[in-house]
C-alpha cells in the first residue's frame, strides 16, 4: 500500500507554485512533480509489485494526483501568463502624439500633380499626350495660329526671342503643339499637351517668366460648339468637383472662333476664369494643311492657376523657388 502521502506531495507542489517568478519556472515544476525522476513516476514504477486490488486503488490515487497537478499547473500558468504580459505591456507607454518621423512619403512637385490629374481626366475620355519643342519658330507660335506680324503679342516686351530676326523664340503658349501635331497627324485628333511656356515677365507674386499650360485639341467629324462646352464642363467637374457651376463668356483668341472663357463659381460665389477655349479658326486648319472645312475645338488651361485656385496658393513665385517648406505641403 501507499508509501507516499499524495496530499503532502500536492501541498509541496502548491508551495512551489507560489515561488514562481518567471514562465520557465513552470517547466521546472512540471519536471519536478511529473517528470521521469519525480516521486510520482517512481511510485508508478513500483505499482507492478502490488496485488491487483492495491494496484488499482493506488494507481487511481496516483492518477488523480497527476491530473490535479496537471490541471492546477495549466491553470496557474495561464494566470501567470496573462498577468505577465499585462505587466510587460504596461511599461510600453510612449507618447504617440510626438511625430518623430518626418517622412512625408513620395512627393512630386505640385505642378506635376496637377498636370497628371488633368491628363488622367482627359485620358479617360480618349485623349493622348502630345509634345513639342519649347524653343520654337515664330511661325509655329504665331503665324500658324493666325496671329499676324503686327499683333501686340509678338512684341519683344511680351515674347522672349532667340535671334535678332525674331524668327525663333521660346514658345509663349502650348498651342504650338496643336500646330506640330496636326502637321504630322491626320484627323481624328484628340490630344492634350502639357508643358512649359515662357513670357517676358520678372518673377514676382503674380508673374513668372516660366509657367505651365495644358493645351487640348480635338478635330473630328461633326464636332460642334456643344461638344466643346460638354468637354470642358466635364473637365471642370472632374477637377474641381461636381457641384461647381460653370459659365462660358465670349472672348477673343486669334486661333479660335467663336472663342470663350470658362468661369467657375468659387467658394465665396466669385466667378473665376479657369480656361480659354474655342472652335479652331479655319485659318489654323489652312496653315497646317488640313481641309479648311474641318471642325474641331481647342482649349488652354494654366497649370499654376489651377493649383493656386485649388490650394489657395498666394504667390506664383513659390512654385519656382523650391523651398521644401512649400514643396512638402503637397
Amino acid at each position: 500500500m501507499p508509501e507516499v502521502n499524495t496530499d503532502k506531495i500536492f501541498a509541496a507542489f502548491l508551495l512551489r507554485l507560489e515561488e514562481v517568478a518567471q514562465i520557465e519556472d513552470f517547466d521546472d515544476i512540471e519536471k519536478e512533480f511529473l517528470g521521469k525522476n519525480s516521486l510520482l513516476s517512481e511510485e508508478r514504477k513500483s505499482l507492478s509489485s502490488l496485488n491487483e486490488v492495491s494496484r488499482k486503488k493506488y494507481g487511481k490515487l496516483l492518477q488523480d494526483l497527476s491530473n490535479n497537478i496537471t490541471s492546477k499547473l495549466d491553470e496557474e500558468k495561464t494566470k501567470f501568463k496573462s498577468k505577465f504580459f499585462i505587466q510587460r505591456e504596461l511599461n510600453d507607454n510612449n507618447d504617440i502624439s510626438i511625430d518623430w518621423y518626418k517622412n512625408l512619403g513620395s512627393k512630386n512637385h505640385v505642378l506635376t500633380n496637377v498636370m497628371n490629374e488633368v491628363v488622367d481626366i482627359f485620358a479617360a475620355i480618349g485623349y493622348t499626350v502630345s509634345t513639342g519643342p519649347e524653343a520654337e519658330t515664330s511661325w509655329h507660335n504665331f503665324d500658324a495660329l493666325n496671329t499676324p506680324d503686327w499683333h501686340p503679342a509678338r512684341y519683344e516686351s511680351d515674347t522672349l526671342y532667340l535671334d535678332n530676326k525674331l524668327e525663333k523664340l521660346l514658345r509663349t503658349q502650348t498651342s504650338t503643339v496643336q500646330v506640330r501635331h496636326m502637321q504630322n497627324n491626320k484627323p481624328p485628333v484628340y490630344i492634350v499637351a502639357p508643358g512649359r511656356v515662357y513670357r517676358s515677365d520678372q518673377l514676382d507674386a503674380t508673374h513668372s517668366p516660366v509657367f505651365h499650360q495644358i493645351e487640348g485639341l480635338a478635330v473630328d467629324e461633326n464636332l460642334t460648339f456643344s461638344d466643346l462646352k460638354g468637354t470642358l464642363e466635364y473637365f471642370v467637374k472632374e477637377f474641381f468637383g461636381k457641384d461647381l457651376k460653370t459659365k462660358f463668356i465670349p472672348h477673343f483668341f486669334p486661333f479660335t472662333e467663336p472663342s470663350a472663357e470658362v468661369l467657375v463659381s468659387w467658394k465665396d460665389g466669385e466667378w473665376l476664369e479657369i480656361l480659354g477655349c474655342g472652335m479652331v479658326d479655319p485659318n489654323v486648319f489652312k496653315h497646317v494643311g488640313y481641309d479648311t472645312d474641318s471642325h474641331g475645338f481647342a482649349f488652354g488651361v494654366g497649370v499654376e492657376r489651377l493649383a493656386m485656385i485649388r490650394y489657395g496658393i498666394d504667390h506664383i513665385k513659390n512654385f519656382y523657388e523650391n523651398d521644401l517648406r512649400f514643396l512638402r505641403q503637397f
Binding site: D120, A124, I125, T128, P188, I249, P250, P258
Partner: peptide, 23 residues
C-alpha cells in the same frame, strides 16, 4: 453664337480615340 448666349447651348461629351492611352 454670342447673341444666342453661350450658356444656352446644350452640352455634349464626345469621346476621343485614345481611351486611357497617355502615350
Amino acid at each position: 453664337a454670342k447673341h444666342y448666349g453661350f450658356n444656352n447651348f446644350e452640352s455634349t461629351l464626345p469621346q476621343g480615340v485614345h481611351k486611357n492611352n497617355k502615350g
